[in-house]
Design a protein around this nucleic acid. Sequence first.
DNA 1: TTGGCGATTTTC
DNA 2: AAAATCGCCAAA
Length: 184
Amino acid sequence: MQALPRSFYNRDTVAVAHDLLGKLLVKKTDGITRVGKITEVEAYLGPHDLAAHTSKGLTPRTRVMFGPPGYAYVYLIYGMHHCMNVVTDADGTGAAVLLRAVEPVLNLDDNTRGPGRLCRAMGIDRSLYGHDLCSADFFLSEPDTPQSTIHIVSRPRIGVDYAGDWAHKPLRFYIDGSPWISRP
DNA sequence: TTGGCGATTTTC
DNA sequence: AAAATCGCCAAA
């Protein structure tokens, strides 16, 4: 099981978001390997995207998101839940893809729908802020067995009603027909 | 230093 | 429908 190369992330964010669907998220903790298949994501394109955290500019929190691709952007939301993103596109772009749901594959309970639940099931917290995803203990990879062709559904992103025109752009993507989705 | 708020989840 | 709960950030 090999980590996707950094070049995978160093591309257009929407393209990466599409291609992340069906990939495996792998986390090794204390000798336990947890694996989930990504079923739902959201793209955050950069400072011009009013729903993206980087629209607030370069701050300590957004530092990683403005950095080179292939690193984890993990943050705490509502004082109690963590959200996991992968930084995308060229260094300095300020874009990322939020992982919203996975299908349990190995050592996960079935409570993996929703960004907060996904992080809880995988054991992801802020200690992984800025963690290199081209690493041995936390990474994404191709599935072991080739995927049959999947259909991708596009919907407006969730929880970003404050973002004006950007609130209804169809930047949420999920695998059509998958039961492992945070909501229809 | 302070106050408002959030890429959510759970419970009432 | 509303609470839980705290780090981030803009304003003072």
